[in-house]
Amino acid sequence: MLKIAVCVKQVPAYSEGLMDPETGVMIRAGLESVLNVYDLPAIETALRIKEEAGALVDVFTMGPAKASAVLKEAYAMGADRGYLVNDSCFSGADVLATSYTLMQAIQSTEDYHLILCGRQTTDGDTAQVSGAIAKWLDIPHVNWVTEILHVAHDSITVRQAMEEEIVTVKATYPCLLSVERSIFLPRLPSLKGKIAAKKKDINVLSLADMEDQEESHYGLTGSATKVEKIFPPAKTAQRDIIQKDSQEAANYILEVIKKVNK
């Protein structure tokens, strides 16, 4: 049976760009947490493959204990097993350490044929974790995947939307796909699934469960970069009040759109 791992993240539901003025760190306290919207299509993709070709769908998330909520949500959608990658030494990780930790967690669990990631997260926004996981595992990586064309026992054929062209790619397993939001509209959890999810266990993976148990390879110490400051971009609000008749106003708006799109 095809084995699929999906990487997901819990993120703040929204951010009003509030920063702690002293530390430069985003204020998350009190904000509702949700499953990153870019990851939902990755779960959906895995579930569609499962429904069509049969597959085991495991979901991985690295984060604090409360991040297990996103695994419960994935259960409610139809995922089989959820893994919370959690250890005090994993915190403070950048892209390098995050991808390394996820790779270790995935590798220590199963020999997966397919790993699915969302395009990016709404809080970190780097869109680099999926590529980095593939690099650590030394497996093919296809990003910007907009369509699954064929699922075979040894490979998967997908459509990849490059900037200028659309490419059809056949990747042999094991491989990693990073899917676009447009690939599938994610299903909503079903009531039956949601109730069942509440009763299902979450597997926790800590440093002791990893193949590489060298603490310095994880978290802040395993990170190559350190965020000095995060700040919202300067607001460039521009407001023009134009009073014209409807025809002239429509033409004016068209001109503005053309100018912006240039």
């Binding site: 539901a13 509702e32 949700v34 909503l188 079903s190 009531l191 039956k192 109730i195 509440k198």
Partner: peptide, 28 residues
């Protein structure tokens, strides 16, 4: 959850498939 379970039973009795019912939680 307890209320949700009672509703699920009620739905089954009224021929509404709980596997197709949308169920979400949290403000967003």
């Amino acid at each position: 959850e307890e209320i949700a379970e009672i509703l699920m039973e009620l739905a089954v009795r009224c021929d509404s498939d709980p596997d197709r019912a949308w169920a979400v939680s949290g403000e967003t």
